[in-house]
Design a protein around this nucleic acid. Sequence first.
DNA 1: GCGCCATAGGTAGTAAACCTAGCTATGGGC
DNA 2: GCCCATAGCTAGGTTTACTACCTATGGCGC
Lengths: 114, 114
Amino acid sequence: MKAEAQALKGHLDVLLLAALEGGPRHGYAVKEALREGSGGRFDLPTGTVYPALHRLEGAGLIAGSWSVVDGRRRRTYTLTAAGERRLHAERGTWHEFAAAVTALLEPGPWPATS
Amino acid sequence: MKAEAQALKGHLDVLLLAALEGGPRHGYAVKEALREGSGGRFDLPTGTVYPALHRLEGAGLIAGSWSVVDGRRRRTYTLTAAGERRLHAERGTWHEFAAAVTALLEPGPWPATS
DNA sequence: GCGCCATAGGTAGTAAACCTAGCTATGGGC
DNA sequence: GCCCATAGCTAGGTTTACTACCTATGGCGC
């Protein structure tokens, strides 16, 4: 079993929102941006990215629109106002969460062993 | 639906292992240590903690043994050598993962929007 | 011309893991 | 007598990411 295969659980959505913060992108570009921006660590299969984008679209956090470039249809996603609010909130949540986990992983801080 | 309900996905195991690093504990004590050590942030239901401990025991990362205190049976868990190795490895993984996510969440570092 | 690859989009089905809701049991406080 | 904290457990549901597929275009090598 792959070690960090499912490590993103629960944190993928924020990353997708953050990827759209700099401007609209189509799905494949989001996937590539995530891969490049993470130094290859988050090289997600399309079967992970597309359903996730559909989820976010269904939740009204991003808005998708079809366009045709060179006869090929592309679905371009844009961050909505709700998505921007969510992104800000989730950023804060992430920092708190990460700080808590990091603190707990430091050897020592645990309440005394009964 | 609760916002950060499933935020621990994939990171719970490390925290449980870390909780046992300071010495053996029984399940309920692990849950309480996690709650207190995180300032109440990780107040996990027993239905989350016990199955997770069973999982870790099945994987040979912790060892459980029954004891009786005041006529009440308690299952005390101890970190195994394999568990200790895993904990060390996962600590590194966590730091890398957290750094990558934090970097991606900073506004800006994304490859140019096509 | 034909096959292959990168790009671009997608779905179906599986597996993991965390949660909700319930259960049993003891000892102490109201 | 009843409820709560402690202590342990299970069943079932939901979410979510993954694997494995499919479609389609345009460019490249042969």
